Amino acid sequence: MSEPLLSVRDLRKDYGRRQAVAGVSLEVGRGETVAVVGESGSGKSTLGRCVVRLSRPTSGSVRFDGVELAGLSARRLRPLRSRFQLVFQDPSSSLNPRWSVRRLIGEPLRVQGREGDVAGLMAEVGLDAALAGRLPHQLSGGQRQRVGIARALALSPELLVLDEPVTALDVSVQAQIVNLLLRLQEERGLGYLFISHDLSVVGALAHRVVVMSEGRVVESGPAGRVLSRPEHPCTRRLVDAVP
């Protein structure tokens, strides 16, 4: 059996006496979407930040394609970063407001000293070429999120950690972004760690679901089973919240 693309084992993240993540384990295979769901404050976003090493875990293991990330120095981690990328909930907070779309998407390529096709990336995520010179405030919310996704794809990653990527969008735009993510996964074979509290979106994307509450995994399994026959009270509350 081949090793999963991402393997998290007994991951903990403490902030003083508070355990934001308390012994979480999960796996993501190539071309697979694993959704991490939970109510606000459950620790799911902290988990995502630990996976991509924006936050250093207190203890536990994060293995990406067989390489242990949790204890790597910044210097040794740098060449691996292009292989996994984070897509934020609010793209505005991660986009330099003074940079054009062209520069925002091309910046990862410049930093890594690589050649790349910014126009091709824009087309891949459904952005019109006429938007290349625009600034973030001149774009719609959906267009800004497409810029964020294009920038994440610039270095041809194998894993995307998507932290509530459609929460700030209206329902029709959410559906467009979900369809975009499904197409990109099929074409590129991407693995997704999809963080959300919205099970209507999760149901359209995920192969497996991991439910967190107070920093711990309280339920997990195939998406169809978890969403149709929830066992834990937290999962039932999330299911009941779906319109």
Rank of each mutant, 00 (worst) to 15 (best):
P4M: 02
L5Y: 02
L6F: 01
V8L: 02
R12S: 14
R12N: 15
R12V: 15
D14F: 13
Y15P: 07
R17S: 15
Q19N: 14
A20P: 03
V21K: 09
V24H: 10
V24A: 14
S25E: 09
V28A: 08
G29M: 11
G31S: 11
E32D: 11
E32M: 11
V36W: 11
G38P: 08
G38E: 09
G38I: 11
S40W: 10
S42R: 13
G43D: 14
G43L: 12
K44R: 15
T46I: 15
T46D: 14
L47F: 13
G48K: 06
V51R: 08
V52I: 15
R56P: 13
P57D: 09
P57K: 06
S61H: 14
V67E: 14
E68L: 06
E68N: 07
E68G: 10
L69D: 09
A70H: 02
L72F: 03
S73V: 02
A74N: 12
A74G: 11
R76C: 10
R78Y: 03
R81A: 04
L86H: 01
V87M: 00
S92Q: 13
R98L: 12
W99P: 06
S100H: 04
V101N: 03
V101Y: 02
R102A: 15
R103P: 04
G106T: 03
G106C: 04
P108G: 06
R110D: 14
Q112G: 12
Q112R: 15
G113W: 01
R114M: 11
E115W: 06
D117M: 04
V118W: 04
G120T: 07
G120K: 07
G120Q: 05
E124S: 10
V125D: 05
V125L: 04
G126D: 08
D128T: 04
A130M: 07
G133F: 08
L135M: 13
P136S: 03
S140C: 04
S140G: 05
S140N: 03
R144P: 09
Q145D: 09
Q145H: 09
R146D: 12
V147D: 06
G148N: 11
R151F: 09
A152K: 10
P157G: 13
V161A: 13
V161I: 11
L162K: 09
L162Q: 09
D163H: 12
D163V: 10
P165Q: 12
V166Q: 12
L169Y: 10
L169I: 07
D170M: 13
D170P: 12
S172D: 06
Q174V: 06
Q176H: 13
N179S: 12
L181T: 02
L182N: 09
R183N: 09
G189P: 01
L190S: 05
L193F: 03
L193E: 02
I195E: 03
I195C: 04
S196E: 02
H197E: 01
D198E: 08
L199I: 01
S200H: 03
S200K: 02
S200G: 15
A204I: 00
H207M: 00
V209N: 00
V209S: 00
V211K: 00
V218A: 07
V218E: 06
E219S: 05
S220N: 10
R225C: 01
V226I: 05
V226P: 00
S228W: 01
S228F: 01
S228K: 03
R229N: 11
R229C: 08
C234S: 15
R237P: 08
L238M: 05
V239T: 02
D240P: 06
A241G: 07
A241C: 12
